[in-house]
Amino acid sequence: MKKLAIAMLLAGATSLMADGAAIFAKCVGCHGANAEKSALNKSAIIKGQDTAKTVEQLNAYKAGTLNQYGMGGLMKGQVAALSDEDIQAVSEYIAGLK
């Protein structure tokens, strides 16, 4: 019984964790399925980009302090609803794309 309770607790915690691939799904239209595209032919390709750099950029877009390639307004809207955990998860997902 104790093992079942622990398994259920872990399963519940896992379902609450941010899923980087699911979050990235809304980025595919501009960045490509594997982050291999230059978004709107303006941005750098982010495929495999360092996690810390992506976290920093996404937080800056969210705060409205980054307007790289003139994409600040568009990106602010895209990341506005992301939590810190979401930003970390999607950044790790992007870094893992090779």
Rank of each mutant, 00 (worst) to 15 (best):
S91F: 09
A63E: 14
G73F: 08
A33P: 00
D50M: 02
G20Y: 10
Q57G: 02
Q88E: 13
N59D: 08
L40M: 15
F24I: 00
K47D: 00
H31Q: 09
L97M: 14
M8T: 05
V28W: 00
Q88R: 10
L82Y: 06
I87S: 06
A60N: 09
Q57L: 12
G96E: 06
D19S: 08
I94D: 03
A22Y: 08
K26L: 02
K62N: 03
S43W: 07
L74Y: 05
I87T: 07
F24R: 05
K76M: 12
N41P: 00
G72Y: 01
K62L: 06
K42T: 01
A33D: 07
A18W: 01
L16I: 09
K47S: 09
E85V: 04
N59G: 01
T51S: 12
T54A: 13
A18M: 03
G29I: 02
S43H: 07
E56K: 15
N59F: 03
K47E: 03
A5C: 05
S83P: 10
Y69W: 15
L66H: 04
S15T: 14
A11I: 14
D86V: 04
A81Y: 01
T65N: 09
A21S: 14
L16N: 03
G73Q: 10
C27K: 03
A13M: 15
S83G: 06
L97S: 00
A60G: 04
L16D: 01
I94A: 03
L74D: 01
A13V: 15
E56L: 12
A13Q: 11
T14E: 08
A7S: 10
G64E: 08
D19Y: 05
A5H: 00
